[in-house]
């Protein structure tokens, strides 16, 4: 899979929430797009990322 433009490999199937945990990213501060489609937050636990998926993790920092 490609995460933010970088090729990543995992030995087992991985869900969106597991990917975020591995990368130590707060699920409440991101928008996740897989193959140009926004993934609703309710699906983070179930959505399995396929080997050929392209994932974009858009993070937000505070300030405005």
């Amino acid at each position: 899979m490609i995460v933010n433009g970088i090729e990543m490999k995992f030995n087992t199937n991985i869900t969106v929430i597991e990917l975020l945990q591995k990368l130590e990213i707060d699920k409440d501060k991101v928008v996740i797009e897989i193959n140009l489609e926004i993934i609703p937050k309710e699906n983070y636990n179930d959505r399995i990322i396929n080997e050929d998926d392209k994932i974009e993790i858009v993070g937000f920092v505070g300030g405005g």
Binding site: K29, V30, I38, P40, F60, G63
Partner: peptide, 11 residues
């Protein structure tokens, strides 16, 4: 201002 609110609105 708050990053969680930003993400929630965007999602």
């Amino acid at each position: 201002d708050n990053p969680k609110c930003k993400a929630e609105l965007t999602n």
